[in-house]
């Protein structure tokens, strides 16, 4: 039986490489450079427990940030106060949160870009 291993995603990256964060900001739906693809693959394989997801608050209009419990039947935990008006807005925010979680560095882009 093949069982999910929560720790099988091991790729590490330098959280100071803002050019890759900028690439994602400019082109959130891809295709991505090989380096950015590796980062996104890593982010999308974070353990189910605590993984960010979106709850539909109002279809096509508003979405709440949540974190999955990783346990069947146990609902996600709502992240208080975080509501998005579009999926694109949500994906960019989740990207920045994961960047920080995985590298310890904030995503800080230059003043021409919203961080």
């Amino acid at each position: 039986m093949i069982i999910y291993d929560a720790d099988n995603a091991i790729y590490r990256f330098d959280g100071r490489c803002m050019d890759l964060a900028r690439e994602y900001k400019m082109n959130p739906r891809g295709p991505y450079s090989a380096k950015l693809q590796q980062i996104l693959d890593r982010m999308r394989c974070t353990p189910m427990q605590g993984r960010y997801a979106l709850l539909v608050e109002k279809p096509f209009e508003s979405f709440r940030l949540c974190r999955l419990s990783g346990k069947r039947g146990i609902p996600p935990t709502i992240v208080d106060g975080i509501v998005y008006s579009s999926i694109a807005e949500a994906e960019w925010d989740i990207f920045k949160r994961r960047w920080k979680d995985l590298t310890g560095h904030d995503v800080i882009l230059d003043s021409n870009h919203d961080a």
């Binding site: 891809g30 996104l40 693959d41 993984r51 997801a53 979106l54 709850l55 539909v56 949540c66 999955l68």
Partner: peptide, 10 residues
């Protein structure tokens, strides 16, 4: 999520 290349929308 990896398959759909986007956070899950629930």
């Amino acid at each position: 999520e990896n398959l759909y290349e986007a956070p899950m929308v629930i």
